[in-house]
């Protein structure tokens, strides 16, 4: 029964991980840019949730759209103004650029909010559902459902809408898409904005679950990366599978080892995966 409970806990967390990784994976797949800022985007989303809760007593679930839209705007402008100039250049250039931006943004966050750990504690907790001996906290269930819903919308948007098809077209062949009349730079900016939106939305919900501090942004980045490698690059279903898998694995990992070693654990896992199954769990080649 304990194992079932741990499995459920892992799946609940995994939904949020899927949401985080889908945005990261989208940007990586379409722009061929590793967004080192992704972790800080999540942290900003968390602070939106925290501030709204502290100042106005608003539940962080309600700030999900606010955080999402705010980060969409931020991401869009950042891509338009700064990163677009470097897209298509060698890995070291784009990587160094987003790393520089991460240092800048993260330092601003520390200056503004300090590096202390904070957390949203709800006055009216949602309580939990009991299924026999199984406990399911309602807030976590809600955040998992909402996170998976958002990821599903992203998936549907990419497959079904005109904008989504344009994004996929740019990912497949930038030159051909440009010749077909797709405004590539603007698609890049929208894509980067969408990635930031997913991070902000997940971050807002994360504010109830994870400690909030600018210094955990690298841990989030590491998770997003591990999920991408597990699920295969650039695919939303891959991000969902990888996210849920990482949630479950971390959950069992902290049972057998220590919760403080979560990053180490996922890193060792990543190394093993790269050695034994380099194409990801979904069997797609991606890491070359």
């Amino acid at each position: 029964m304990l194992y079932l409970q741990i499995l459920v806990n892992g799946l609940l967390l995994g939904g949020l991980y899927a949401c985080i990784a889908s945005g990261f994976s989208l940007v990586w797949g379409v722009l061929n840019v590793i967004n080192i800022l992704h972790g800080s985007f999540i942290v900003i989303g968390s602070y939106v949730g925290l501030l709204a809760h502290q100042q106005f007593g608003i539940n962080p679930f309600l700030t999900v759209p606010v955080a999402g839209l705010l980060l969409y705007g931020f991401g869009y402008l950042l891509q338009r103004g700064v990163i677009n100039r470097a897209v298509g250049q060698p890995v070291l250039v784009t990587l160094t650029l987003t790393f520089g931006l991460e240092l800048l943004v993260n330092n601003m966050l520390i200056a503004g909010f300090t590096a202390d750990y904070k957390k949203v504690v709800l006055e009216n907790p949602f309580g939990q559902i009991e299924l026999g001996a199984l406990f399911v906290p309602v807030d976590r269930l809600l955040s998992m459902v909402l996170a998976l819903l958002l990821t599903g919308i992203l998936y549907w948007m990419l497959r079904g809408s005109k904008l989504g098809r344009a994004i996929v077209a740019v990912r497949m062949d930038r030159e051909a898409a440009a010749l077909m009349g797709v405004k590539v730079n603007s698609i890049y900016a929208v894509t980067f904005g969408l990635g930031a939106l997913m991070a902000g939305a997940a971050g807002s919900m994360m504010s109830m679950i994870y400690p909030i501090s600018p210094i955990i942004s690298t841990a989030y980045l590491g998770k997003a990366f591990v999920i991408c490698v597990m699920g295969g690059l650039g695919s939303v279903p891959g991000a969902i599978v990888g996210g849920l898998a990482l949630g479950v694995i971390e959950s069992f990992g902290s049972l057998f080892f220590s919760a403080e070693l979560a990053t180490t654990f996922s890193f060792v896992l990543l190394i093993l995966l790269l050695i034994f199954r380099p194409t990801g769990l979904m069997g797609r080649r991606g890491y070359e």
Binding site: V82, R85, L97, F99, G100, L101, L103, L104
Partner: peptide
């Protein structure tokens, strides 16, 4: 933060 700014300016 300033190191980050320097990097961004160098690249851009």
């Amino acid at each position: 933060g300033l190191l980050g700014l320097l990097i961004v300016l160098l690249v851009l």
